[in-house]
Amino acid sequence: MAPDLLDAYKKMNSSAISLKRISKRYGPKEIIHNLSFDVEPGEIVGFLGPNGAGKTTTMKMIAGTSTATSGTVRVAGFDMATQPEEGTKRLGYLPEHPPLYDILKVSGFLNFIANAKGIPRRLRKIELDKVVNACKLENVVESEIYKLSKGYRQRLGLAQALVGDPEVLLLDEPTAGLDPGQIQETREVIRKFGTNHAVLLSTHILTEVTLICSRVAIINQGKLLAIDSPEGLQKALEETSTVGLVTSGNSTSIQEELSNLDNVLSISAKTDKSNRTKITCHVESDDNIESEIARIVIKKGNLFSLNRQSPSLENVFLRYIKESKDLRNTN
């Protein structure tokens, strides 16, 4: 098979980003252990983890600025160890600190990026106008970079990653240092881009993940703890969710009856001055549990409210991090 045909064939069968059992060692210290996951075209994957979890190191290995000690990293089907030029051609990368040349003008800098990415001269102006508009940089195009505010620097960093419409976009904390309005605009840019490209973004802002990501990868201490959609991760923890209710009935007798139910694990109650009792039940996942609880409570008095509280993504995250720590301690 001809080499270009072979490449095309390989590409058809490959994810936009594919990590297979990658590890990274610095001397005796292993920073990343056996990490594997894929990012498909058209999805935005959030990379979540506490500081020092290995997010940036993993990003660097995907971008090819650092090499994995073992395992393979593929970008658009190209191995970053053996074909880095093919991989980097299809990749836009915004590192943690936006890499900018302070002494150049914004236009000069973007021109350099377009040249380096090999964008033909006749398309260059259209391409640069497009990213300048997308990142709202029109007002600063002729300014020197050292004069820019932090928000503009961050957006210029994003703009350079978007130049050339890369298949894969790697963003290391893209909204750090932006004000709320800018954060929203930036998310919009990423969301739009993510509809037909593959985006991997690292963050520790949990709302960001729920707002724009279709899947979340949680990592800690260089290990992948979970990868799923935000809803999927929440559901996994829903097995022991809580049902809260407010009633005017006698709290002791209600508690007694509720504790007889199979799926109720524990109950706590608190009566306030107006004689209303707030009861919290920890329950095992069961679709009918709310109606059963309601039936019991109504027999004893008025039911003012009843709701099931799903764990927030924050709880999911903290739980995974805690579990990984416990596991390490017992080992």
């Binding site: 051609k89 990368y93 350079q160």
Partner: peptide, 14 residues
């Protein structure tokens, strides 16, 4: 020191 080396390596340049 300007952390731009990362950019150069991530660009499609040998």
């Amino acid at each position: 020191s300007g952390r731009t080396m990362e950019l150069l390596i991530a660009l499609p340049i040998n």
